[in-house]
């Protein structure tokens, strides 16, 4: 376990919270802990309660979905500087996909219930959080849409 001061610094250095008012960063640090996952270890399992979300400091995480008859399909990989998970903001707060470390991965884990409570009590904090998570969602949605186009696929397919 690292000290609260250490977490504070990591939060302020992570791109997801960069530029956030120090007061809010301190509030978030109160809900945060430092964790690491070995390659192959799951951070998130589909269907589980979304009780944490993660800021990746080092390493890489695959967001996966298990399909019958084959190994899991990787939907996207997340890397240093990325944020993992937003189901903690969406009732009923259950994970929709798996997330698995594909190498040794160090993260800041944030207690979702703790932060939801603080955001509920201070809507300005809530607004700050949402305005940071929205661009992430938007970027991932755009990326998903781009891949839906199958840009590098055979041009004759479907004609």
């Amino acid at each position: 376990m690292v000290s609260v001061e250490g977490i504070d610094r990591m939060i302020s250095e992570h791109p997801f919270f960069s530029g956030m008012e120090p007061g809010y960063q301190a509030m978030i640090a109160g809900c945060a802990s430092n964790q690491s996952f070995e390659a192959g270890q799951y951070l998130i399992r589909e269907g589980d309660n979304a009780d944490h979300f993660y800021l990746i400091r080092h390493g890489a995480v695959a967001i996966e979905v298990h399909t019958q008859g084959q190994t899991s399909v990787t939907l996207e990989t997340l890397h240093e500087g990325d944020v993992l998970g937003w189901s903690w903001l969406v009732p009923p707060y259950h994970w929709l996909f798996d997330a698995r470390a594909i190498q040794l991965t160090r993260v800041i884990a944030i207690d979702a219930a703790c932060l939801r409570e603080k955001a509920e009590a201070d809507h300005s904090l809530g607004y700050e959080l949402y305005s940071r998570i929205m661009p992430v969602m938007s970027e991932r949605l755009s990326a998903a849409r781009l891949r839906l186009l199958d840009l590098y696929g055979s041009p004759r397919k479907g004609q």
């Binding site: 996966e64 190994t71 899991s72 399909v73 990787t74 996207e76 990989t77 890397h79 698995r100 891949r147």
Partner: peptide
């Protein structure tokens, strides 16, 4: 764009 879990690179 697409991979199964034995790919350790980026998706």
């Amino acid at each position: 764009d697409q991979a199964v879990s034995n790919w350790s690179g980026r998706v």
